[in-house]
Design a protein around this nucleic acid. Structure first.
Lengths: 242, 242
DNA sequence: CCAAAAGTGTTTGGAGTACACCCATGA
DNA sequence: TCATGGGTGTACTCCAAACACTTTTGG
């Protein structure tokens, strides 16, 4: 039993999801990766992240790295898992606490793209550094699972949206068509969404109603953890500079 | 931004659940706590745990502290959450990766009871050290939530059991009566359980069939994480010294 | 024969799915 | 007036809950 002070390093990484408009018409699920500039795995792509500062919470660290690599604010943020396998880093021992986040698609346009930060299709990634392929795979599974029983899809959208846009989120993420009529009823019954009264004009057909998210409802059922850090990012405090 | 090596300490704790026979006839959900022998919170009860050794996985550390405090092996073990609030420890900065575990009730009898290790009713705990009340609350929520959509109830029982015993696990944990007929169909349809052919004799009524768990089925739907540590503890390798 | 729990059968209501069908707008 | 998606109505299926009922043991 090693009695000396543990040399285990602690890091926080984040899997950031967004929907990017695609030439095919339907958007695609993408996430940003950063190129490693030193060993191990130099030159390979990895999840954004870094060490945990003494003066910040875990979720704050996740938000910070998210902001640093993408210049975006998360619209949804949740802890994914703590990875601590012995062999996940070749030389040192690192435990990574991983978060996953949703950012709005229209903002992802304005996001940073550079030599060392690029967005990849979530379902078609290169070989990543460390165990990050497994981590992304798990984050994808959680995203898809949670989308089906929780109401987080609006995290991909802006302040207001049509039900068709919201439905498209489901179709792209879950990779299956969703019946428009049943989807409308499902969403309306959940009470998670409120009509703004305005309509989206300029369409070549009947103008659809615009909706806003019902902020008075807890969307991610995390039980008692709602008191904690996870809930803080649920309030949509985006620059309402009117 | 603190550039020096982070001084954040990493610990692993475990919430251990068991069903203990009770004088009222119906068992009760209990968990072991350890009394703190030094500051902070000296004298108060806390979750079993400790620092992470360099040569062990996170789940190994959880199993180890579980073994050290109760002399038991977990029949189910799953990561709960990583807690890293700034103020959760008064003086130093500690990030705790918490696991939750199920142990068999008949084994919990043989478990350690001492001055500094005691079992408490899960729904009626004293004020614990650190943020451990919140942690237990969350673990309880996860246990109850997971029991309803996953098949982990046998983790409270021995090798073989009757459906009435299994049903009692649900009734005690979920704190509500369960219809025997529907429960039987539900369990049989899930395929998670296999009749042994033997019957439990000595009852004042019709002798019930004994069942064994179907080990060829993955019980905890953790998606891609099944490859990882979480799955290792699912194999029931208890002393089959025949 | 009786009590009590094991085990089976039957009914029903609600939720999700499939799909037919009107509505409102731009061109 | 037509094409297109917005939005509504309706029938059907499946599963879970409720509950009546039969079976098998010990006393």
């Amino acid at each position: 039993m090693s009695t000396e002070q543990s040399q285990v390093a602690l890091a926080v990484s984040t899997v950031i999801f967004a929907l990017r408009p695609h030439s095919s018409g339907t958007p695609e699920l993408v996430l940003p990766l950063v190129r490693r500039i030193r060993e191990p795995y130099q030159g390979q792509w990895a999840l954004p992240g870094g060490p945990l500062n003494l003066d910040e919470d875990l979720s704050q660290a996740a938000s910070r790295t998210l902001l640093e690599t993408t210049a975006l604010e998360p619209r949804y943020l949740e802890q994914l898992y703590a990875f601590g396998q012995l062999d996940r880093s070749p030389d040192d021992r690192v435990v990574s606490i991983v978060y996953w986040a949703l950012v709005a698609g229209d903002e992802a346009d304005r996001a940073i793209q550079s030599e060392n930060v690029q967005w990849f299709t979530a379902d078609d990634l290169p070989e990543l550094a460390f165990d990050h392929n497994l981590i992304v795979e798990y984050a994808l599974w959680r995203l898809r699972t949670k989308l089906e029983y929780s109401r987080i899809a609006h995290g991909f959208l802006g302040e207001t949206f049509t039900l068709a846009q919201l439905r498209e989120v489901y179709e792209v993420v879950l990779r299956k068509p969703v019946d428009p009529g049943n989807f409308r009823r499902m969403v309306e019954a959940s009470g998670t969404v409120v009509p703004t009264g305005e309509r989206l004009a300029g369409t070549p057909h009947r103008p659809p109603q615009l909706y806003r998210y019902n902020t008075s409802i807890d969307l991610s059922d995390n039980g008692p953890l709602s008191q904690l850090e996870a809930s803080r990012t649920l309030a949509f405090t985006r620059g309402e500079h009117s």
